[in-house]
Design a protein around this nucleic acid. Structure first.
Lengths: 80, 80
DNA sequence: AGATATTTGTTCGTATGTATC
DNA sequence: GGATACATACGAACAAATATC
C-alpha cells in the first residue's frame, strides 16, 4: 500500500512506483498492467489512473494501443 | 486568449464568449464543447467551467445529459 | 460470422482543500 | 469574511475498438 504524501499528486506517486518497476525489470517490455488494474492495486480512481498512464506515456516509457492496452517500451514503428 | 476583466466573474466572461458562439452559429445545435474542453481552451479550473455550463443551462441555451455531454438547443422531451 | 470479454476513451457529477482578492 | 478561482481526486455512466472463442 502506498502511504500518500501531501507534497505531490497521487497520480505522480503512483507513476513513480510503476516507473521503478519498469526500470528494475519487474515490468519487462510487453503488456503493462491495465488502467483498471492500477485502480485496483493502488486504490485510486479511474480518472486518476488515466493521468498515471498519460504521464508515463509522455515520458516515453510506455505506449498505448487504443482500446487494447498499454505496453512497456518504445512505440513500435510500421516496418517490422 | 481572453483578457480577463475585473468587473465580472471569469465564468461569466467565458459564458459570454460561448453564448456568442451559439448565437452566431459557430456552435450549431448539437454537441457542445466538453467542460474539460472549456478548461483547456480558456485556461480556467474545472470547477469554474462547471459554473459556465450551469449558467448557460439556466439560460436555457444548452442542456446537459449526465455523464455524457452538453448540447446546444432546448432540452428534448420524451415524446419525440 | 457472431457473441463475449477486455480495455481504453470520454464525459459529467461531486467533494475537499487551498489561495487570493 | 465572503466570493471567486484553482488543483486534485473520487465516482459513475456510457462509448467504442480490439481480441478471442
Amino acid at each position: 500500500m502506498i502511504e500518500w504524501r501531501a507534497d505531490s499528486a497521487r497520480w505522480e506517486q503512483v507513476a513513480r512506483v510503476i516507473r521503478k518497476r519498469i526500470e528494475s525489470g519487474e515490468y519487462p517490455p510487453g503488456r503493462l498492467i491495465s488502467e483498471r488494474g492500477i485502480v485496483e492495486e493502488f486504490g485510486i480512481a479511474y480518472t486518476t489512473a488515466r493521468k498515471v498512464t498519460a504521464g508515463l506515456r509522455t515520458e516515453g516509457l510506455i505506449y498505448t494501443r487504443p482500446n487494447y492496452g498499454s505496453f512497456v517500451g518504445p512505440e513500435p514503428t510500421d516496418n517490422e
